[in-house]
Design a protein around this nucleic acid. Structure first.
Lengths: 180, 180
DNA sequence: CAGTAATTTCAGTAAATACTGAAATGACAG
DNA sequence: CTGTCATTTCAGTATTTACTGAAATTACTG
């Protein structure tokens, strides 16, 4: 009812984050709730969130469930309060890692399965050309996956350092002469 | 009218690609057309595409425009035929590079602007906490951007080799002792 | 410069997606 | 147990997004 007015900076971030969500296939409200929790110093309960964003309580409920499914929001309890409270991870790198991992699991892995399935087909049946394109696509995904797999076995700390190391890439390119 | 029956493998790929598109914020039909062109040995004209996918001619028109906007489909002409024909890039790595570049431009860059804008605000106004979270988020994006910038200046060939190099990551982690 | 084929635009419609609010369920506290 | 508060479910509705087909425009041909 009574609009709990958000700090303008928070509002700006929340709205933008919501838009970004939609562009990457994430429900707007889900993204907004995540943004709100990310900027909230203390855990919030569903009712507060509903008021802050002017959405229905039930909508918040489902969205929180989804965020928990992603593993970037968790429920906590406040002494003397029966309600569930929610907080976001604060470590941006860790959130990024989790999101990448989830999207791999939900979207990339099934795509690779599909591609392998397509290549299974008697190669006479479909044209040579189709088979060639699908092979290239599969190889691309598999290369990316094994790169990712390697990266995953490096400690998060070391990985951060690697990414942060300016000019890191250019030093690392294989062998002779300067890459051009 | 007369359904041009797609090769089952092509159909499978096209349908899957369409679904993946939607999950990443790409219109289903747009993704399907891209998939179809990717697997097509010769350039197709809009009418063929409309029939193959059973969608309206005008829908194909807009979708092709969008794909051209992304830069992964281009128009070509066939001698003795007035119609525009369309073909997809065939190099998967190059397509990936272009898509990443575009999404950076359309989505990441504006987000970083927004974040910088938020940090501009008199830090007294918003809570210390909000400012701290926004700083971390900004730093994350900026680190990623400069990493990407480095990678962009490496030749595509070298970059491919780098990604393909198994165990590449673990070798590359800074300094003393083996990571992890 | 007429006539025709190709393409694009756009208003209307359909489909998908997101959201609401009432009702059902669950979880305590006394 | 009983009542209260919290949460979830779900059927109905609203909103957004995608799509169609007719009409307008553009591009070409003879």
């Amino acid at each position: 009812m009574t609009e709990i007015e958000l700090n303008p900076t928070v509002k700006r971030f929340v709205l933008h984050w919501g838009e970004m969500g939609t562009r990457w296939g994430i429900n707007r409200t889900v993204a907004q709730i995540h943004a709100l929790l990310y900027l909230s110093e203390r855990p919030l309960h569903a009712e507060e969130i509903a008021q802050a964003l002017s959405v229905a309580r039930s909508n918040v409920s489902g969205s929180l469930r989804e965020l928990q499914g992603w593993g970037i929001v968790r429920v906590v309890h406040v002494l003397g309060d029966r309600r569930d409270h929610f907080e976001s991870l604060t470590d941006v790198w860790e959130m990024f890692r989790i999101i990448v991992e989830e999207r791999k699991r939900r979207e990339v892995d099934p795509t690779v399965s599909m591609l392998r399935g397509c290549l299974q087909e008697p190669p006479a049946k479909e044209s040579k050309y189709v088979h060639a394109r699908l092979s290239e696509m599969t190889e691309f995904f598999e290369t990316m996956l094994s790169f990712y797999e390697d990266a995953r076995h490096v400690s998060p700390k070391a990985l951060r350092q690697f990414v942060k190391m300016r000019a890191g890439m250019s030093l690392l390119i294989p062998k002779k002469g300067k890459a051009k």
